[in-house]
Write a protein that binds this DNA or RNA. Structure first.
Lengths: 173, 173, 173, 173
DNA sequence: AATGAATGAGGCTTCATTCAT
DNA sequence: GATGAATGAAGCCTCATTCAT
């Protein structure tokens, strides 16, 4: 991957995440990347192809973030790490999270693939911990994850740590 | 409000909610509403004005939905009604909810006004119920609300009722 | 059909006929027609649609020209009129003939539909006149037609009348 | 001439002949020839230069084909060979004929040079054979040539041999 | 109020051409 | 000689908006 190709990818991620895909002109991506507009199409075929490439990068990063949670043995730790996840989004990860969530709301771009594996792990964890409805608990904690991410990504990137304590206590942590 | 103006508003809501604002051409709105392209501009000045009108309608509807929660006396009931809220989104409300959430992710269109009043009520409710951190509990339940809405609006409009039971139990309901 | 639509059609015919379809920019058509470029697409969907519309006009005009020949009773007259046809292309018909021929040479745009009916008539005429191979004679005279059109359209729009006499004599006219 | 240069020339001939000059991208030529995009410009300066080189090749081949006719002593044989010419276009010559004819219809690319010499020969032949209007007969037979080429190149590469017999008889062959 | 033809700016994309390697 | 990344002008097309009717 050439340096310019990476610059395009990076600018596209930033702009798609903040302005939205449809509202971002390819000329803006090119300008921000310091590159000719034509180069985008040589590397990514079309605007859709650029989005796909950006999404693949996001998915990969997301997978690696979730892997950390999923490879944890102790079920209590799994829950704890997941609850903390949205509060520990780093500056460098901010845009990929934001794009991932923003795209869910754009016409038919919901990508659930990365969640499926996580679900299995969570159901296992809740089962081991003796919860009565492991599936429902899993769905609920994933909802919390979506809500926390939404809230933190949209207003206070620094988060309010007391919330984390409150939710942890609901899981006996 | 003439009938055609209302048809425009209705089509715009539907299309903006499902395709996104930027990705929806005004000509599509006109076609779906069965009116001429020019009429949109006579009634709403420009596309942005149409969006504003649609959002106002949404806000009003949202306010009336939240009012039902906020006017409840019993603090336990307030919590319960709020938890149930995302699970009781009716077909006719679906699009207004979806648009409201989709727009949050679009550049600078977040409208917090309706949440502020709700926050006050929730802090009051958690206080009365003797919770240790009413503010943090309020933030948390609002996160849950965002997460549940996200999840329910994006994939299972019918929801999974067991989740509701599980979360209710966390609040002793 | 509005006046501007007709102006577009007319300019497109002229430019496609002289510069070629692929080599003619839609902006050039618009400029020559004294019209905004966008109007082309409102009326004809895309550049291909514009070509189709132009071709349909040509086909119609061509059909009416050939009809004159085909409705002739006397077989000798049929032959004579056909032989004279390319020598009597008027200034106003020039572009439609030129486009019709030019397009034959462009990727897969040969339209034989108008020739089929003519073939039938010619085979009938040569048969009545007692020619030994009416089909082959028909093919030959159509070849002559293509050749004469090619020659006259490409260099001397005024033609050389002696050629006509020479060919007529080969058919005993 | 290097092998790659020849491959470019060959691909260009094929694509220009079938798709048209304006409609053929240099990148397509490079791809079909299996060379890099830049190489075309090293060898031929620009796209126009590539066309010129292709046309020169065509002209040379055409000249050698016509030379065979023109070097014939017997005037009857000259006529016969010319009449047979379009019916004897070989598969390997097909593209050069097609390009030559297609280009006639493109703005200002008609190359008459090779016809001039042929005209002289034909006038001579018709004169020797005692025809009344050798010049007009020459123009006519050249028209036939254009028509036959048009017809044979555009639809039936195998031709219909009876046509040849019919036309030969018109010249007493 | 309502239509729909018309505009023009700007969007996505292609493509001839250049240039560092 | 050869490559292929890169450019930028131009091409096709879309779309918000205007305006005569």
């Amino acid at each position: 991957m050439t340096e310019k190709k990476e610059r395009i990818l990076h600018s596209a991620l930033r702009l798609f995440a903040t302005q939205g895909f449809a509202a971002t002109a390819t000329s803006k991506v090119a300008k921000e990347a310091g590159v000719s507009e034509g180069l985008i199409f040589r590397h990514f075929v079309n605007k859709e192809g650029l989005l796909t490439a950006v999404m693949e990068q996001c998915s990969e990063e997301l997978r690696s973030v979730l892997a950390e949670v999923m490879l944890t043995e102790d079920p209590t730790e799994v829950i704890r790490k997941l609850l903390e996840l949205p509060f520990s989004i780093s500056r460098s990860q901010y845009e990929m999270w934001r794009l991932s969530y923003a795209l869910k709301w754009q016409a038919n771009r919901y990508d659930q693939s990365s969640q499926e594996a996580l679900k299995e792990v969570l159901i296992g964890a809740f089962s081991k911990l003796g919860y009565d409805y492991p599936e429902a608990e899993t769905e609920l904690i994933l909802m919390y994850l979506d809500g926390a991410a939404t809230s933190l990504l949209l207003h206070e990137p620094d988060g309010k740590p007391e919330i984390l304590n409150v939710v942890k206590r609901k899981y006996g942590l």
